[in-house]
Design a protein around this nucleic acid. Structure first.
Length: 468
DNA sequence: CTATGGCACGGATT
DNA sequence: AATCCGTGCCATAG
């Protein structure tokens, strides 16, 4: 009699609620684990790998929505759908492998794709497979650990060709990709900045000659070696820290800041991917919400039928429980997807300019407003938004919560003002400049934002300009 | 004396 | 209820 408590039917209603909530707040990876767990303990749950169009549910040969559906939604601002794929990041093998890793076209690494798209124009068609091979051998941080001679052997490509492809890869969007380590990655990123900038060339020298010391934060030694002041050393170091990324594959997280608790060692694969079908600014955005698994979950129809056929029997009770639980789980999953879809639809329509054109165009909005519009509790939105990341068309991966950052556009304006200034402006002057632009904030607040963005105070900026 | 950063308070948001 | 954010006041560095 006591065992019945375990799976008795009574708590179903509450369980439903509890599960819906707990699924919503999960990111892709956690959800995946959760689904796998459920799948392995519940025989009534079934994973269908059949490819169907996420919009019209018709069968398809490949992933993504079918051309017809895309065609018919072309005049919409955005096509939002839950994609029956897992997000792209797969565990990456370390260590030596002699054979070429198979190029799984069915499960594309979207980082690789992102890079290839940019490379398409400038790369010789015959170099393409080489690029693919290189991209698929990168480790989590985007480094190429295999030494060059090794690559020459496995690919049987001439050294120079290899080098030119590597060179090309390291200079497209996540800059510094496919370099052997942080030092080279940083150098590659510096290559892309104006070389006549004294800070840039100084940073280069620093990396080339005193990398070791930089790791130890031995400012005195660095200063001595390069024959510059310690202050300059600090400034250059700050510049590197603010503007460059030693781990290219970890790409842009937030504004590149955040050495705090938020475990910067994990490269988050996005939970949502936004792409644009054409370069054309008018063309609709494709918003792909990754479901945790490839394929779809459903209640096993065979088991359902079996239960109907023999309503009695020793197993029927157990089956019934399994079926209940399975259908509950599927419902929760659907609800999660549904909420995410609605959320993204609103978000994308509202913040289109932010997504395409950058931080300045973020319209301030609160979770509460969104919740109102969709008709859910605001805590629901909170949960849906937290711990999720989203990949923008330009390849940046940002936390979804950034959409609700009220000060982002102002901070961006400040960056712009400082960049354009001829003579260093004090915080008060910046504040009044902002006031002219229609943004009213206190002087003190300008200072806060400035420090968040890692911009030095006016007094110290002066030195830089003089040096320039 | 001025520009900036620290601390802390109140109000909004989660 | 807890947290985050903008701001005012004040000390301090330059």
């Amino acid at each position: 009699m006591f065992q019945i408590q375990d799976h008795s039917l009574r708590p179903v209603a509450t369980a439903h609620l509890a599960q819906t909530m707990s699924l919503l707040e999960l990111g892709n990876l956690e959800l995946r684990e959760r689904v796998l767990e459920e799948l392995s303990t519940n025989p009534a749950l079934e994973l269908v790998e059949e490819r169907v169009c996420p919009l019209c549910q018709r069968r398809l040969p490949g992933p993504g929505p079918c051309p017809r559906c895309i065609q018919s939604s072309l005049d919409e601002e955005a096509i939002v759908f839950v994609s029956p794929r897992d997000s792209y990041r797969k565990p990456i093998r370390r260590g030596g492998h002699d054979e070429m890793p198979e190029l799984e076209p069915a499960a594309p690494e979207s980082l690789a794709i992102h890079v290839l798209q940019q490379l398409a124009a400038e790369l010789d068609p015959e170099d393409r497979p080489l690029a693919v091979y290189i991209l698929s051998s990168l480790d989590e941080d985007g480094f190429l650990q295999e030494p060059l001679p090794y690559l020459v052997r496995t690919t049987r490509a001439p050294m120079e060709q290899l080098q030119s492809v590597l060179e090309a890869i390291s200079h497209v969007d996540p800059p510094g990709l496919a370099t052997p380590g942080p030092r080279k990655a940083l150098l590659a990123q510096l290559d892309m900045l104006p070389s006549d900038d004294p800070t840039v060339s100084l940073a280069k020298r620093m990396l080339e000659e005193t990398f070791q010391l930089m790791g130890q934060k031995d400012y005195a030694q660095i200063a001595k070696h390069l024959k510059i002041s310690q202050k300059t050393v600090r400034q250059t170091l700050a510049f590197i820290q603010e503007n460059l990324n030693p781990y290219p594959a970890r790409a842009f997280w937030g504004s590149g800041r955040g050495p705090q608790s938020g475990d910067p060692n994990v490269y988050h694969s996005p939970d949502i991917l936004i792409t644009q079908r054409a370069e054309d600014a008018e063309s609709p955005l494709m918003v792909e919400i990754f479901s945790a698994m490839r394929g779809w979950l459903r209640v096993n129809p065979l088991l359902k039928k079996a239960l109907k056929d023999q309503a009695e029997g020793p197993q029927s009770e157990e089956w019934k429980e399994h079926l209940e639980r399975a259908s509950l789980f599927v419902k929760c999953l659907q609800q999660r997807n549904n909420t995410m879809r609605q959320l993204m639809q609103l978000l994308v329509n509202e913040q289109r300019r932010f997504i395409l054109e950058g931080d300045r165009h973020l319209k301030p909005m609160t979770r509460a407003e969104l919740a109102e519009e969709i008709g859910v509790h605001e805590s629901t939105i909170s949960r849906a938004v937290s711990s999720k990341s989203i990949a923008l068309p330009d390849g940046r991966i940002i936390p979804l919560a950034k959409f609700f950052d009220r000060s982002l556009s102002v901070r961006d304006r400040i960056k712009e003002i400082v960049k354009k200034e001829t003579t260093p402006l004090t915080d008060a002057q910046i504040a009044s400049e902002l006031h002219d632009q229609g943004v009213d904030i206190a002087r003190r607040t300008v200072a806060k934002y400035r420090s968040i963005e890692g911009i030095l105070p006016a007094r110290l900026r002066k030195r830089e300009k003089v040096a320039a």
